[in-house]
Amino acid sequence: MSPIDFIRDLANPDLSFLWKALVIAVMSSLICGVIGCYVVLRGMAFIGDAVAHAVFPGLAIAFVIGGNLILGGIAAGVLTAVLVAVFAQNRRLKEDSVIGVFFVAAFALGIVIISRAPGYAGSLQDFLFGSITGIPDSDLYVVAGTGLGVLAALFALHKELVTISLDRETARAMGIRVFWLDLALYVLVTLAVVISVQTIGNILVLALLITPAATARLLTDRLATMMVLSPAIGALAALVGLYVSWSWDYPTGGTIVLVLTTFFLLVYAQRVVGSRA
């Protein structure tokens, strides 16, 4: 399928799910691209994978009772993030240990809950790998509103988040409330993950957080530039991935991830070649 045919399909009223899928994919990529810069800066890629596990019971409960999946995921993710932030204050346990305990337990709880629903296998597959073509109109507004809220919060807390990412002890000495900023970042990552789950699935959502930001990091040493490049790379990969998946009938989530990975490898190769020249 040519790009022109793809554009025609987007404009076709009978294929309205296609443009909704594109809007959701691009919005999710933009939000994850921005917040992913903080995740990469702090070297906490594990948190993205863990949060994806944490939101699962909320998604499962919402599915079983016929509620909104996004709101269910947000509730579960925020609750788990609060528990992690509180328990991580115990100096006998490192943060990654607490994350491993709570977030995996949350995922296991989600598995148990979704197993009680009719059509268990198909539902689980949608949660794990995404179901971008079945997104209702209401989710467009929820994703847009949540995304704007995440960006506004990141803008308001930018200086403090960068400070604790670079030197937590110095931040404490300056009187910055590290605990509350950690909690805020967990919650914002949770929100970004939840709005992306339908696009790319629970398993692959980490790619939207990490790969665009890691690619941008290879291109620049300036955080401001990185925070422009990362969402742009993510949005472009979403567009290209959706086009390829629609044209050749590939899974959308997996295709977007492979496009993102291709971008990363191309930039990495260019950097290696450039350093040897």
Rank of each mutant, 00 (worst) to 15 (best):
S2D: 05
I7C: 03
R8C: 02
L10D: 03
A11D: 01
P13T: 13
D14L: 14
F17V: 07
L18E: 00
W19G: 00
G33R: 07
L41N: 05
R42S: 15
R42G: 13
I47H: 12
G48C: 12
V51A: 15
A52F: 04
P57N: 09
L59N: 06
I61H: 08
A62K: 09
A62Q: 09
F63V: 03
I70W: 04
A76I: 03
L83E: 04
A85L: 00
V86W: 08
R91Y: 03
V98H: 11
V104N: 14
A106L: 12
A106W: 12
F107K: 06
Y120G: 11
A121M: 12
L124H: 06
D126M: 07
L128V: 08
S131R: 07
I135M: 02
D139S: 11
D139F: 04
L140G: 05
V142R: 08
G145R: 04
T146M: 13
G147M: 04
G147F: 06
H158A: 06
H158K: 12
K159F: 10
E160W: 04
E160R: 14
V162N: 01
T163S: 15
R168T: 14
M174L: 15
F179W: 09
D182S: 08
D182K: 03
A184P: 12
L185D: 07
L185A: 10
L188I: 11
T199D: 00
G201M: 05
N202K: 09
N202W: 01
N202V: 10
L204S: 04
V205H: 05
L208W: 04
I210D: 09
T215C: 04
L223S: 02
V228Q: 03
I233S: 00
A235H: 00
A235N: 01
A235T: 00
V244M: 07
D249A: 14
Y250R: 01
G253P: 11
G253I: 02
T255L: 00
V257T: 12
A269F: 14
R271L: 04
V272N: 01
V273Q: 12
V273P: 05
